[in-house]
Design a binder for these strands. Sequence first.
DNA 1: GCTTGTTCTGGTCCTGTCGACCAAAACTCT
DNA 2: AGAGTTTTGGTCGACAGGACCAGAACAAGC
Lengths: 239, 239
Amino acid sequence: MSYDPSQFPAFAVTVDVVIMTMSEGTLKVLLVRRGEAPFEGMWAIPGGFKRPTETLDEAAKRELAEETGVDVPSLLTQFGAYGDPERDPRMNVVTIAYIAVLRDVGALVAGTDAADAGLVPVSDVLKGRIELAFDHLRIVRDALERVRVELELTGIATAFVGATFTLAELRTVYEAVWGVQLDAANFRRSVVAEDGWVIPTGRRARPGPAGGRPAELYRAGRAWSHGGPIHRFQREERK
Amino acid sequence: MSYDPSQFPAFAVTVDVVIMTMSEGTLKVLLVRRGEAPFEGMWAIPGGFKRPTETLDEAAKRELAEETGVDVPSLLTQFGAYGDPERDPRMNVVTIAYIAVLRDVGALVAGTDAADAGLVPVSDVLKGRIELAFDHLRIVRDALERVRVELELTGIATAFVGATFTLAELRTVYEAVWGVQLDAANFRRSVVAEDGWVIPTGRRARPGPAGGRPAELYRAGRAWSHGGPIHRFQREERK
DNA sequence: GCTTGTTCTGGTCCTGTCGACCAAAACTCT
DNA sequence: AGAGTTTTGGTCGACAGGACCAGAACAAGC
């Protein structure tokens, strides 16, 4: 606790944002291609320096806006800090990592220069099929684990889908994030039973190319802070 | 993503450790009294500067050892980063916050200068009966919430008790952290049913001053990563 | 128009879990 | 010995969750 304000080790502080989305039924993460050394040309999580005048949350929000143009993120959660001495070969950098969960940002990404930004399946990153700069692999791993927990504890699931959605869409979120298969009927019962979480709009969705009965459209109700309708514990152990 | 290594805003990076323990049946937090400005004489969470050569986890471990002498913490978890521009009036300080859960450290604290370290009930801090320096109140609040979640998801409960313990001791941990009342018989069934989590030693504990049947002594088995024996969801809603 | 295929919706059944409650066991203290 | 206390073990009922089935509502093909 010896505390000398004039003499302290200086660090660079950055904010990295793991932007996750559902696309084509699988969980994807937004990556950018680095234009400079070190790790030039390699994929990385978007991020940048924190400014002295802003809070960490504000910095994350700014980085997200700069990268995707999304201004009001439905979910932006801090989940970890990384400060290993050798994580950046140039200097001492401590980074604060955030998760942003967005509705499909495929259009946004396509709008930017397609060469330096892309949506990549999370599984490809975890399996090492895509190598990331710095310790970003570890950050993505931790982010996924956090999303898995958050999915059970909070209303984060609706952040993956649009303003209105079918229960089948919502179900694919759980299935993709947890890597499980859920019974459509049972899922429906659990979600609808949780009072006030999803609100029927009365309208119906257009069936997909394969036909099928049109699904009811719902919109997100209040998000709870504890205890979602779907739990994953037994599922994992038995699988 | 413009990234100029030679020109970046410099920050001080500190590591703060919220040390929690069970004492006299209630949840307590270890606080130190500040000896210097700002906030001189006020209670604060122990912490200090991160060194450029160590990782964040190592820094937290070092701070914990310096403060309590405990070298092998049963639990030391990073749970948040705080970097509001005005959180330290002197300069830009980003702090990484850790939780350390320890078996009763009352003896350790008594060993140090009693004037500048003390175990304080967490509830007193949350209710504002004890004012903390910086944004440490918020940090303690977040720490408690994290412990509550962790208690359900991991084997953290055994970190609060000693090497061997009775199920009644373990039950008071859940009751104190969650603020609930649990049925002793049901608690026992749940915990013992979880295979391999607590291991009976065959020995028995001495009954307390009020007498009563002597309880079996257990020791901690493996800690699981997901899905503890006790859940709190319905409990909270009904209470 | 009818059939087939697909998807969503609603229902039943069954098992396991969890809380409430009760009773016996094993100790201390008077 | 008896009262009080705490642990341990058991029963019972409510309820949630998963497996499974059937009907409803659409598209596409013949």
